[in-house]
Each structure stands twice: as C-alpha cells, then as structure tokens.
Simulated assay, not measured.
Amino acid sequence: MCRNITTLRGLEPSATAEEIEAAARQYVRKVSGVQGPTAATREPFEAAVAEIAAITARLLDELPARRQPPPTVPPLRRPEVRARLAAKQTSAS
C-alpha cells in the first residue's frame, strides 16, 4: 500500500523520532488522501500523525532485534533528500 514508507526496524543507529514521524505522516497522507492539510483537515491530520508515530515508536521498542538491517536506507538518512529539505526550508523562510 505505502511503498514509500521505509522499514525502520533494525536501523543502526535506531530510527529517530523524525524518521518515525515522517513514516507516520506518509501513512496518514496515503490513507486519508490529504497531501497538504487545510484549515479543515489540519487538526485531525496532525492528531493522527502523532498517534501513529507514538504507536510506531512503541512497536519498534517492543519488537525483537532484526538479524539483518533493512534493505533500504530511510529517506531522511540520504544526503540528497536532506539537501532538498534544507533548500525547501530556506526558500520558505
């Protein structure tokens, strides 16, 4: 369903809160069909992201360690993604 969500379990170092939130946000975008929240959708959208991120963090804490790391690197660990996000934040300021 969400091919863009990267496996976070087994990362070294462990998944960060930012990575967990990004995965939760991608999931909520996909299931809700809301890409950019509006005034009418912002509150339930952000509440869902927060709940899913908390549940995901708890799940990752409770699962046993993986034998092998995930096959792909999360987007927030890729230099080109970080550069694009930094440029986006600079242009928005």
Rank of each mutant, 00 (worst) to 15 (best):
F45G: 07
I5W: 01
E62V: 02
P13S: 07
Q35R: 13
Q68P: 03
R78H: 05
S91G: 11
R84G: 03
P69I: 04
C2D: 14
A65F: 06
P79C: 12
N4C: 11
A86P: 09
R25N: 00
A17K: 12
G10D: 09
V28S: 01
R29S: 10
A57M: 02
Q26H: 03
T56H: 08
R58A: 07
R3A: 03
A54P: 08
I52W: 12
L8H: 05
Q26R: 02
T41Y: 06
V34K: 04
L11V: 05
A39C: 07
L63Y: 12
L63K: 14
A24Q: 00
G10A: 05
A50W: 07
L60E: 09
P71K: 13
P70T: 00
A65V: 04
L59R: 12
A24R: 00
A48G: 02
L8F: 02
A54L: 06
E12D: 14
L11C: 06
V81Q: 01
V81A: 12
V31A: 01
S14P: 14
S32V: 08
V31I: 11
A23W: 03
S93W: 11
L76P: 13
P37W: 04
M1A: 07
I5E: 10
Y27H: 00
S93Q: 13
D61I: 02
A83L: 15
R58D: 03
Q35P: 08
Y27Q: 04
T16C: 11
R67H: 07
P37D: 04
T16I: 06
R82Q: 15
A50S: 13
E12P: 08
E19D: 04
R42K: 15
L76R: 12
A39I: 12
I52R: 15
E19A: 05
T16D: 11
T41Q: 11
Q68F: 05
V49P: 11
T38P: 14
L76H: 14
K88W: 06
